[in-house]
Design a protein around this nucleic acid. Structure first.
Lengths: 135, 135
DNA sequence: ATTGGAATGTCAACAACGCTGACGTAAACT
DNA sequence: AGTTTACGTCAGCGTTGTTGACATTCCAAT
């Protein structure tokens, strides 16, 4: 990046013995890719006082309807308290519905409402468009 | 993820017409990859009251020694105020050195100190080990 | 049947790190 | 001389992570 030696990792090399150069290129690629990938949803969500955390919650609830809070923060890799704040606003805003468990009343099962599904669709559509642009 | 239909994107399909399923798998892959990729550095930095922002600054200063502040926050995609907070602590802790420009004295050129280079090496070594594990 | 502990989820307070806006200084440009 | 640029800093705010404390519910040992 700084020095102009932007040679691609020579495809014959073993992936187990990365040069410093190759490693650092990988780190940067990940950084820029991730940022580009979330840019569109970030912009949409900013208008609603939502952030990336809301997006992730919506995404995974859509993927696994009826999942519990416990389940969800384990998947997301955050604390239950952190997830709770996000869920609270999503529920308050009518995007997510929380149902007390039938077998275990301690659990809350999470579902997207129609409105929640609508937002999820909007966000993934934006990312789909972004991916098309990348080609 | 929720439904078990974890079929790989059929490699013959056009990348321009992603199914919902394929798109969502891509989103998730990006999320998990990025998190896994930064997990080790995050842990190391947490012990020093540093975060991911410090890591990024150190990384790019190492990549482009002598870069200016302006340059750096443009690359990182953050405001100068946000970068400044991070930079200030790094300079105070003796990991980064800031030199007034020779040609243009308004500019500050940024360099890693020996100590800064040591930390950078530690962080990228952790990521190198992580990548080896991934295979 | 009661009780003690584990599991689940909620509320509160704090830290990291984005952001905007405003202002000051020095240097460069016109 | 006046404007613009580069940088630093202060103040304030929002999102999203953290830990700590607490209520409810379940379950297992007594």
């Amino acid at each position: 990046m700084a020095d102009g030696r932007m040679m691609a990792p020579s495809s014959g090399d073993s992936l187990l013995f990365l040069t410093d150069e190759q490693l650092r290129q990988g780190i940067e690629a990940m950084f820029f890719a991730y940022r580009g990938f979330t840019a569109d949803p970030d912009r949409i969500l900013a208008d609603m006082a939502y952030g990336r955390a809301h997006h992730r919650a919506i995404h995974f609830i859509n993927r696994a309807p009826g999942t519990t809070v416990n389940n969800l923060f384990n998947i997301l890799g955050v604390t239950k308290q952190s997830l709770n704040r996000v869920l609270r606003t999503l529920i308050a805003d009518g995007l997510v519905q929380s149902k007390v468990g039938r077998n275990d009343k301690r659990e809350r099962h999470l579902f997207l409402t129609d409105e929640g599904r609508k937002l999820e669709q909007e966000l993934s559509d934006a990312q789909r468009a972004r991916m098309r642009l990348a080609f």
